Simulated assay, not measured.
Amino acid sequence: MLFPGKEALVIKLKKFLSGLILLIGIILTLTACIQQKPVTIGFVASLTGSTSELGVNGRNGLMMAVEEINDAGGINGRTVEVVVKDDQNDPETGLAVDQELYEDGVSFIIGHMTSNMAALSIPFVNSKDMLMINPTMSATTLFNQDDHLIGVVSPNSDQAAVIKASMVKNGGEKKVAVIYESQNLAYTGTVKDGIAREIVPLGGQIIYEEAFLSGSNPNYLDITQRVSNTNPDSIVILASSFDAAMFCQQFYKLKNQTPVYLAAWSMNNDLLLQGGGAVEGVTITSLIDLDSRIPTYTAFREKYLSKYGAEPTFAAVYTYEAAMILFDAMAEANSNDPETIKNTIIKKSTYQGLQSDIIIDGYGDASRTIYEYVVKDGQFKKAE
C-alpha cells in the first residue's frame, strides 16, 4: 500500500515518463524526416540559342548521373533532385539564376558551361559560400585560384599546345589566321592567346584575327573572304559547332585549301550535321577519346545512346563525372556544407572517370589528356 503522497508522486512520474517517451518519439520522427529530405542541387547552363548544345548535352549527362545514384539508394539514403536553370549564355542572366538558386536554399551548382559565365557567377558563389562544380569552363584564367570552384576540365592552354603541334606537323605554324566568337571571349580569347604564345618561339605569328558575335547573323562569307585574302598557312576557328560549320561552308565555297583547326567547343555531332562535306579534313581537338573501350565508358555510351538517340559529347561525359564527384564527396563527408565538400574533394584528389582517372589539385583544378581528331568520311577519326 502506497502512502497518499507517494501515490501522487508515482502518477506524476508516470505522466512525465509518458510525455518523455512521446517527445523522444517526435524527435526521432523529425530526425528521420530531416535525414530523408532530398539533396537538391542546381544545374545552370545555356539551354537555348547557338551555344545550347553544351547545355543540353551537359543536362543529359547530369540526369544520367542522378538517375544512377537514386537507383542505388541515393546519397546516404537521400534522393537527389535537380533544379535546372537556363543562363541563356548571358552573364547577367546567369548571375540572376544563381541568385534564385541561393534564395531557394540551394548551395551546390553544377555549371556553368561556357567560360564567359564565370566573371559574375564565381564572385557571387564565393561571396555566398556556395560550391560550383565546373564541367566545361576551361578559360586558363580560372585556374590556380583559391575559390569555390571545383573543375573537371583541362585549361585552354592544353588545347592550344595540341593545335600548335598539329600545325607544326603540317608545316603551318608561321602565318596563322584566327576567327573567334566574342561573347564567349573568356574561352576563345584564352585559346587564341595560347596559340600565339605557342607559335612565337617557332617564328610564327597570328597575322590576322577577327571576332564575331554568335546569334547576331554574322556575315560568314565576308569574314571568310577577309581571312582568305591574308593567305595564311593555317586557319583557326574558335566557335560553337554551328558557327564553325557555317564558316567551313563558306571556306568550302571559296575552294579553300588551307588547313582548318577547331577547338573542343566545336566537337559534337552538330558540326557534322551542319557542316556536311565542308568540314571534311578539318582537324579538331577533343576532350574525350571517342574510340575508348574502357568498360565504364562503353556502358555509359550505350545507355546514353539508348536514352537520347545520339553519341555522348564531351559536355555529357564531363557533367556526368562532375556530378559523380560531388555525390561521392557528399556521401563520404555525410555533409551538406559546401566548404566541407570542397575540402573532401580536394583531399581525396583522385577520382575514377569514365575513361581515366581524374586528378584534382589543391586549387580544385584538373588537367586531362587532350585528343586530336580529323573529320573523314563524315565521321570523327582519331588523328595519326
Rank of each mutant, 00 (worst) to 15 (best):
residue 4 P to E: 10
residue 5 G to Q: 13
residue 6 K to R: 15
residue 8 A to V: 03
residue 9 L to M: 12
residue 9 L to S: 10
residue 12 K to P: 01
residue 20 L to C: 14
residue 27 I to L: 14
residue 29 T to R: 03
residue 31 T to F: 13
residue 34 I to F: 12
residue 34 I to H: 06
residue 40 T to G: 05
residue 48 T to V: 14
residue 49 G to E: 06
residue 50 S to Q: 14
residue 51 T to I: 04
residue 54 L to P: 01
residue 58 G to T: 09
residue 62 L to I: 07
residue 67 E to F: 06
residue 68 E to W: 01
residue 71 D to Y: 15
residue 72 A to W: 09
residue 75 I to A: 00
residue 75 I to V: 11
residue 77 G to D: 09
residue 80 V to C: 03
residue 81 E to T: 05
residue 82 V to R: 08
residue 82 V to L: 13
residue 85 K to N: 12
residue 94 G to Q: 10
residue 96 A to V: 01
residue 98 D to G: 08
residue 98 D to H: 07
residue 102 Y to A: 15
residue 104 D to R: 13
residue 107 S to E: 05
residue 107 S to H: 11
residue 109 I to M: 07
residue 118 A to H: 01
residue 119 A to H: 04
residue 120 L to K: 08
residue 123 P to A: 11
residue 130 M to D: 10
residue 138 S to F: 02
residue 143 F to I: 02
residue 143 F to H: 12
residue 149 L to H: 04
residue 149 L to S: 04
residue 149 L to K: 06
residue 153 V to T: 10
residue 158 D to S: 13
residue 161 A to R: 06
residue 162 V to Q: 05
residue 163 I to A: 07
residue 168 V to D: 06
residue 172 G to E: 01
residue 175 K to P: 03
residue 179 I to K: 08
residue 181 E to M: 13
residue 182 S to G: 08
residue 183 Q to E: 07
residue 188 T to E: 02
residue 194 G to A: 12
residue 197 R to A: 15
residue 199 I to R: 04
residue 199 I to L: 06
residue 211 A to I: 06
residue 214 S to G: 15
residue 221 L to I: 11
residue 225 Q to A: 03
residue 226 R to F: 11
residue 229 N to L: 10
residue 234 S to W: 04
residue 234 S to L: 03
residue 241 S to C: 05
residue 241 S to V: 02
residue 245 A to S: 13
residue 246 M to T: 03
residue 253 K to R: 10
residue 255 K to S: 14
residue 258 T to F: 02
residue 259 P to D: 15
residue 264 A to T: 15
residue 277 G to E: 15
residue 284 I to V: 14
residue 284 I to L: 15
residue 285 T to N: 07
residue 285 T to I: 07
residue 285 T to W: 02
residue 290 L to M: 09
residue 291 D to F: 00
residue 296 T to I: 10
residue 298 T to P: 00
residue 299 A to M: 07
residue 300 F to I: 11
residue 301 R to T: 02
residue 301 R to Y: 06
residue 302 E to A: 12
residue 310 A to M: 12
residue 311 E to N: 09
residue 313 T to H: 05
residue 317 V to P: 06
residue 321 E to Y: 00
residue 322 A to P: 01
residue 323 A to D: 04
residue 329 A to M: 01
residue 332 E to C: 09
residue 334 N to P: 01
residue 338 P to I: 09
residue 339 E to W: 09
residue 342 K to L: 02
residue 346 I to W: 08
residue 346 I to L: 09
residue 347 K to T: 10
residue 366 A to I: 05
residue 368 R to P: 09
residue 370 I to K: 08
residue 373 Y to W: 15
residue 378 G to H: 00
residue 380 F to L: 00
residue 382 K to Y: 10
residue 383 A to C: 11
